[in-house]
């Protein structure tokens, strides 16, 4: 299969101490699409995702081999500038983890640490923009001073996405972003992701196969640290070429 790619890994291996969590991963993620990573618990989905913004660096025992190439640049090198990498590759976590601060401060945080804008009006403008793009502006424009912890979970998760978007990233990584949301909130987030894929490359880890089938264009199936199959979502869910993928999709295990 030949297609342009935004993120590519070449023979990526990752070890937690002695334990090998990723085994020779070769994945090619296309730009401006939603790519879903599915697989049973503990197969290494989160670990793989965290390779794309080098969040695994935080864990002392981790050792990685191989290349992670984003826009033709291997980011898996010691000299990589992690600050600009993480600005370019944003991440949204499983739990909507807003800061225990106002909506405004949650969004201004990234602006402040990257020294993006100085003038208050410009910052406010960008905040409006970010909230607009996650569909929160109407609800929150009069509540920017309100503590973000008091929002609904769905609003909080959107705010987390906005907090990433305000940094003008190119890639957004989401690790089970809907697992603590109810079905309606989940659908709303999915709709949002669908809109966002026009502008950003989105990689989402999910436990929920229906979700992967609903929103993604490309899909990877992982098992025990291996990327068993990577293809268009349509192909994965209709004619998977590996029997292990088929077994998982049809619910024979996992």
């Amino acid at each position: 299969m030949n297609y342009p790619c935004k993120i590519k890994t070449i023979n990526l291996n990752l070890f937690y101490g002695e334990f090998q969590a990723l085994k020779n991963i070769n994945i090619k993620i296309p730009p401006k699409n939603i790519t879903a990573i599915i697989g049973p618990s503990g197969c290494g989905k989160s670990t793989l995702l965290r390779c794309f913004n080098r969040m695994n660096d935080l864990i002392e025992s981790v050792r990685t081999e191989g290349k992670v190439i984003i826009d033709n640049q291997n980011i898996n090198l010691p000299e990589t500038d992690l600050i600009s990498l993480r600005r370019k590759v944003g991440m949204v976590f499983q739990r909507p983890n807003v800061f225990d601060l106002s909506v405004y401060e949650n969004l201004a945080f990234g602006v402040k640490i990257h020294r993006l804008y100085r003038s208050k009006t410009k910052i406010l403008e960008e905040i409006e923009h970010a909230l607009e793009s996650v569909g929160l502006w109407k609800e929150l424009k009069d509540k920017l001073k309100k503590n973000a912890k008091n929002l609904t979970l769905d609003q909080q998760q959107r705010l987390c996405i906005a907090r990433v978007i305000i940094l003008k990233p190119e890639i957004i990584l989401l690790d089970e972003p809907c697992s603590s949301l109810d079905p309606i909130a989940t659908l709303k987030i999915e709709e949002l992701l669908f809109q966002l894929k026009e502008k950003y490359t989105i990689v989402i880890v999910t436990h929920n196969m229906q979700q992967a089938a609903r929103i993604s264009q490309f899909c990877g199936f992982m098992l025990l640290g291996e990327l068993v199959e990577f293809d268009t979502t349509e192909k994965i869910f209709t004619y998977p070429s590996d029997t292990r993928t088929e077994n998982y999709i049809t619910g024979k295990f996992g």
Binding site: L58, L82, I83, R87, G90, N97, I113, H114
Partner: peptide, 13 residues
């Protein structure tokens, strides 16, 4: 730990 994670993931030093 998650506090540090969010901040670092947003590109903070």
């Amino acid at each position: 730990k998650s506090f540090r994670e969010i901040s670092l993931s947003l590109g903070a030093t």
